[in-house]
Design a protein around this nucleic acid. Structure first.
Lengths: 315, 315
DNA sequence: ACTATCCGTAGAAACGTTTCGATAAACCGT
DNA sequence: ACGGTTTATCGAAACGTTTCTACGGATAGT
C-alpha cells in the first residue's frame, strides 16, 4: 500500500512536506504542493484512516446504535442524521447488538447516538464519565457528556386520545410499552390525564412491549370489550397497532373503524399502506435525526475548540 | 485515557509484558498475567482500536453498503450477516452514501459487502485491484478479490409467471427494473422464456425502477389492459407491486385478485400486511446474509492463513 | 555589506499498540 | 559446579500519520 513515505521519496521531499501539502497548509509553496498532489494521485494514495485516527485522536465518525436492524422505524431518522453529519464532514456508522457497544470505549468514533434498548442507563453513564460524548434519543439521562433529544410524547399521546374521544368513543383502551421505556411512560401518563379530563370516559390499560406480538396479544381483551359497543384503542406505537389489526381481522369479525377504532404512534412507513390506513401520530423523524446530529457535534466540536487547540506561548 | 503504558508502570513491568499478558500469550506466567489483568480492570483499560488497527493491519470490521437506509428490504439480511460475522469475532458496520465509499480504500474495514447501486462496477473493480476484499450481492463481477452471492432469479421469476398462468391468466404484464440492475435483467429474461413456453400467453413489458413510484406509474396502462378481461401482473420487486396496488385501489375501481392479479418479488415485510396480502416470491434473506459473510471471511482469512502467518525458519 | 527577518522545507517525536529478538535468571543433568 | 537449555521478562522497532521545532537560504533594512 502506498503511503505518504512513498510520495515523499518520489517527490524528493520530506514526509512532513508531503503531509502539509496534502492537508493544504500554506507553509508549502503552491508549486511544490501541486507537484506533490499530482504525484499522490498518480500513485493512487489514500490516507490510512487508522494512522490518522491514532495521531489526531479523532475519527470524524459518529456511531448510531439501534436495537435491531428491522428498520421500519429508522429510515428517515438515519437519513436526517446522515445528511447533517455529512454536511459537517463526519461519516455515519450504524451498529447493533451488545457486542458492538465496546466500540464506544475503544474510541471507534467521536461520539454516539443511542436509540437502543440494550444499553442500560448505568452503562451509558459509565461511558459519559470517561469522557465519551453521547446523545440519547427519547430517553432521560442527565450528564455533562450526554445530550437528550426528546419528543413531545405528552402532546402526541394527548392528541391521540382526543382524536378517539372526538369520534364519540368514551371507552378507551391503551396498549402500553415496556416499563423501562421512558417514552412509553410519558405517553401513558398523558393518556391517563386526557381520559380523566373527559367527563364520562373510561380507560383500560393493557400491557405491551412495543412489538407486533403484544398488539396481537391484546386482541382478545379488546374484542371482548367491543362486544358491548364501539371502543377506541390507542396503541403506544404503530407496531402494536398493526399487530392488533392483524388479530382483529383474522380472528374476529369486528370491523376496524366501526367496532374498534385504532390509533398508533410514530407513523412508520407501514402505517400508510394498511387497509384502512392506520391512524397514527406523526412527527418528523428526519428533523429528529438532524437535531440529534447537531447536539452531538456541538459537544464534540465545542470541546475541541474549548480545549484551546490554538493556544500558544508567546514572548 | 488509560493506556497499556499506565498498566505497565502500575504493575512495574514492561509494556510488552502487559501486551502479551492481555492477549493471553503463554510467554507470561499465569500469576503475572492475572495480576496485570486485574490491574487493567481496575484502571478500566480498554484497548485503543486505532492503534491496534494500525499495527496489526486488520480491523476485525466488515462494512456493508446499502443504497439507502429506508430499510424495508434489509432487516433480515443484516441480521443474518451480523450473526455470522459475530460468530467469527468480526463486527458489522452499516454505511450508505457516496461519501462513505472512501472508507474502503482507507482500510476502515477488512472487507465490504456491496448491495448498493451507487457503486459502479468499475469502481468496485478498482478497489479489488488494490487488494480490497469484496462480496457483491446479486451483481455480476469477476475478480479474484470479489465473491458474488447470487439469487436464483431465474427460478423465482419463472415461479411467479407460472403462478399467474396457473390461475388461467393468459395476458401477462411485467413491470421491470433499471436496465443497469443485474437481477432485473435476469428476472425479465426468465419471464420472457416462461411466457413463450405457454401456448397462448402474451406478454407486455412495462418500464420500472424498483421503487413504489414506478409501480404507481405503471397503473394506468395496466388498468387499461384490465378493461378487456383479467390480467396478471408480475412486478419485479415488491416495492413496485405495492405502488401498483396503491394506484389500482385509489384511482380505479378494479379489484385486486379478480380483475388484476399482482405478484411481487422479495417478500419484504410490508407484503404480508397488505390487504389482500401480496403474492410474492420469497427467499431466505437471513441465509443470504450469512452466506455473504461466509464468502467474505473466506477471502479475508484465507489470505491471512495463506500468507504464512505461522511460517517460521527452523533448524 | 552585515545583521535581522522571513519563508520553505526537513528532522524528529509522538499517538498506542504488537512482536521480534535479546537478556538475565533459573533449571537440568552429569 | 559447570555448560547448556529453558523460561520469564524486557527493549526497541515498526505501523502511517501529524505537528512542533530547527535550519538554511533568500530577502530586506540600515
Amino acid at each position: 500500500m502506498v503511503s505518504i513515505k512513498d510520495i515523499a521519496s518520489a517527490a524528493k521531499v520530506s514526509i512532513s512536506t508531503v503531509s502539509y501539502a496534502l492537508n493544504g497548509s500554506d507553509r508549502i509553496t503552491k508549486e511544490t504542493a501541486d507537484r506533490i498532489q499530482s504525484i499522490a494521485n498518480e500513485l493512487g494514495y489514500v490516507p490510512n484512516r487508522a494512522a490518522r485516527m491514532l495521531k489526531k485522536r479523532e475519527t470524524m465518525l459518529v456511531g448510531v446504535f439501534l436495537t435491531d436492524f428491522s428498520g421500519h422505524f429508522y429510515g428517515d431518522l438515519l437519513f436526517g442524521l446522515k445528511e447533517e453529519l455529512n454536511r459537517r464532514d463526519y461519516d455515519l456508522i450504524v451498529c447493533s447488538g451488545r457486542r458492538s457497544h465496546r466500540m464506544i470505549p475503544e474510541r471507534a468514533f467521536d461520539g454516539a447516538i443511542i436509540l437502543d434498548a440494550t444499553f442500560a442507563d448505568e452503562e451509558l453513564l459509565g461511558y459519559a464519565d470517561r469522557g465519551h460524548k453521547l446523545v440519547v434519543l427519547d430517553r432521560e439521562l442527565e450528564h455533562a457528556n450526554v445530550n437528550q433529544v426528546l419528543l413531545d410524547n405528552k402532546a402526541g399521546a394527548t392528541l391521540a386520545v382526543e382524536h378517539l374521544l372526538g369520534q364519540g368513543l368514551s371507552r378507551i383502551c391503551a396498549v402500553g410499552g415496556p416499563e423501562s421505556a421512558f417514552d412509553a411512560r410519558q405517553r401513558m401518563r398523558a393518556v391517563r390525564q386526557a381520559v380523566e379530563r373527559a367527563p364520562e370516559a373510561s380507560l383500560e390499560e393493557l400491557p405491551g412491549a412495543f412489538d407486533k406480538a403484544s398488539g396481537y396479544a391484546a386482541g382478545p381483551r379488546i374484542a371482548e370489550a367491543a362486544r358491548e359497543g364501539p371502543v377506541g384503542v390507542f396503541c403506544l406505537n404503530d407496531e402494536m397497532a398493526i399487530g392488533l389489526c392483524d388479530y382483529l381481522r383474522t380472528q374476529t369479525s369486528l370491523q376496524i373503524g366501526r367496532d374498534v377504532h385504532v390509533v398508533g404512534y410514530d407513523n412508520i412507513e407501514l402505517a400508510q399502506y394498511m387497509q384502512p390506513r392506520l391512524a397514527t401520530i406523526d412527527y418528523s423523524k428526519r428533523k429528529w435525526g438532524a437535531l440529534a446530529a447537531e447536539q452531538l457535534l456541538k459537544m464534540i466540536e465545542g470541546e475541541a475548540r474549548g480545549a484551546g487547540a490554538d493556544l500558544r506561548t508567546v514572548g
